[in-house]
C-alpha cells in the first residue's frame, strides 16, 4: 500500500452547464406528465374506477413534482467532469454516486449526442467509449458549443496517444 496517508477522490474541476438543471427538471416533468395524463384520462372515462385512478394520478404527480424539486439541484452539485491530457474523469449520481476514469490511450470513440429536449436547451452529451463492455462514459448537460469543442479536443488527444485501446 502507498503509505499511511489517507486519500480520497477530489471532485472533477468543471461543473456542468447551469441550464442542465432546467433540462433535468423538464425531463422529469415530461416523464411524470405522461402517466399522470394517461391515468387522468382513464379516470375521466371509466366511471366505476374513477376514484382509484385519480388517486393514483395524484400520487404519481406528487411524487414526480417532489423529485423535480429535489433531484436536479442535487445532480447539479454532484455531476462534474474533467479532461486532462491523460484521462477523462467524470462524477455522476446522487444516492448512488459514481466516479469514472478512462485513460486517453484506451478511448476508442468520442461522440456528441443531442436529444430533442437537449436541443431546446442548447445542451449536448459527450459519450466516450472504451473497449470495456461495461458501457461508455457520458458527460451530460454541456453547452453544445463546449461539447463540440470538447469532442474535437478528445478526438485529437486520443489520436495523438499511442495504444490499441485494449
Amino acid at each position: 500500500m502507498t503509505g499511511e496517508n489517507a486519500v480520497r477522490l477530489r471532485p472533477p474541476r468543471n461543473a456542468v452547464d447551469e441550464r442542465a438543471v432546467t433540462w433535468w427538471r423538464a425531463q422529469l416533468l415530461v416523464t411524470t406528465a405522461v402517466p399522470v395524463v394517461v391515468l387522468g384520462v382513464l379516470g375521466a372515462l371509466i366511471g366505476p374506477a374513477r376514484f382509484w385512478l385519480l388517486l393514483a394520478a395524484g400520487a404519481v404527480a406528487v411524487l414526480g413534482l417532489a423529485c423535480t424539486a429535489f433531484f436536479p439541484a442535487w445532480w447539479f452539485r454532484v455531476h462534474r467532469w474533467e479532461v486532462t491530457d491523460e484521462a477523462v474523469y467524470v462524477r455522476t449520481g446522487a444516492l448512488w454516486q459514481e466516479w469514472r476514469i478512462a485513460p486517453m490511450s484506451r478511448i476508442q470513440t468520442v461522440d456528441t449526442v443531442r436529444g430533442p429536449l437537449e436541443q431546446t436547451f442548447r445542451l449536448a452529451t459527450v459519450t466516450v467509449t472504451t473497449a470495456s463492455s461495461k458501457g461508455p462514459i457520458r458527460i451530460e448537460g454541456l453547452d453544445h458549443a463546449l461539447a463540440a469543442e470538447l469532442a474535437e479536443r478528445l478526438t485529437a488527444l486520443t489520436r495523438a496517444t499511442p495504444g490499441d485501446a485494449t
Binding site: L9, W96, I101, T130, S132
Partner: peptide, 24 residues
C-alpha cells in the same frame, strides 16, 4: 483500461466503496 468507483448512500455512511477495474 479504466476505473469506476461507486458509492451508495449507505456505503458513504459506512466509509466503504466499490471499485471496478474495467477491462476489454
Amino acid at each position: 483500461i479504466g476505473w469506476t468507483v461507486k458509492q451508495s448512500y449507505f456505503q458513504r455512511r459506512a466509509g466503504v466503496l466499490t471499485l471496478t477495474a474495467t477491462t476489454a
